[in-house]
Amino acid sequence: MALGGQIYTIFFKKSSTYFLTLCAGAFFFERFADGFSDSIFNSINKGKQWHDIKHLYGQPPEEEE
C-alpha cells in the first residue's frame, strides 16, 4: 500500500504529472505492443517472409531491427 501511495503521489496526484505519465505510458505501450505483435507475426510466418529467405540470394542475414 505504501508503494501504491507513493506511485499515486508521484505520478497521478497532480494533473501535470498525470498528463506526463499518460504520454510516457502511451509511448512505451506503443513500442511494446508493436514489438510484441511483430514478433508474433514473424513467428507465425516463419520462413515465408523476405527477411527469412534473403540470405539465400547473396545478402547476409540481418539482425532483427
Binding site: I40, K48, Y57
Partner: peptide
C-alpha cells in the same frame, strides 16, 4: 488470418 505471402514462391 495472419499469414503473409510465401516469398520464396513469389520469387
Amino acid at each position: 488470418l495472419f499469414n503473409t505471402y510465401d516469398h520464396a514462391s513469389i520469387r
